[in-house]
């Protein structure tokens, strides 16, 4: 092979010419390594493995969508846990106001309606109206 240099060029300066270097590159380009059989087999095994993994993933049935319970839907409907906490607080406050109304509530109602009411948890009627009717009936002998 002519390496792009003449003997004169080589002797003069002893430097590799561009032509010689290009010829060396060209030789390397055409001397690409053969693909070893073992490597080919490993590459194709990988290809099959990846293909099988993907096909298996596609064939797998999707996870069933679990329907939310009534309670979960209620909580979600009112705005989640913070809203639920607020609702609880409001409920307790309402209950407390109903059982133990502050004085300004009862006086305010009296001023509007012109009636006087008093309230004590001990004044709850422990006898139902039905019991009263039963008593009436039995005392009249009916």
């Amino acid at each position: 092979m002519n390496w792009g240099t003449t003997m004169t060029e080589r002797k003069a300066g002893d430097v590799l010419s561009d032509g010689a270097l290009d010829a060396l590159f060209a030789e390397a380009r055409f001397a690409e390594p053969d693909l070893p059989d073992g490597l080919t087999a490993r590459i194709l095994e990988d290809a099959q493995m990846v293909q099988a993994e993907r096909l298996a993933a596609e064939a797998r049935p999707p996870e069933p969508v679990r329907r939310a319970s009534l309670w979960q839907r209620f909580v979600r409907g009112i705005g989640g846990a913070p809203a639920l906490a607020g609702l609880g607080v409001a409920t307790m406050a309402g209950l407390w106001l109903g059982v133990m109304p502050p004085a300004f509530v009862t006086s305010g109602v009296s001023a509007i309606t012109g009636t006087t009411t008093s309230y004590s948890p001990y004044m709850v009627d422990s006898t139902s109206a039905f019991d009263f009717i039963v008593d009436e009936t039995s005392s009249t002998g009916g």
Partner: peptide
């Protein structure tokens, strides 16, 4: 693809 591309990668 292996026949076509792998030798270039190896080189």
């Amino acid at each position: 693809l292996t026949t076509r591309l792998a030798p270039r990668v190896l080189a």
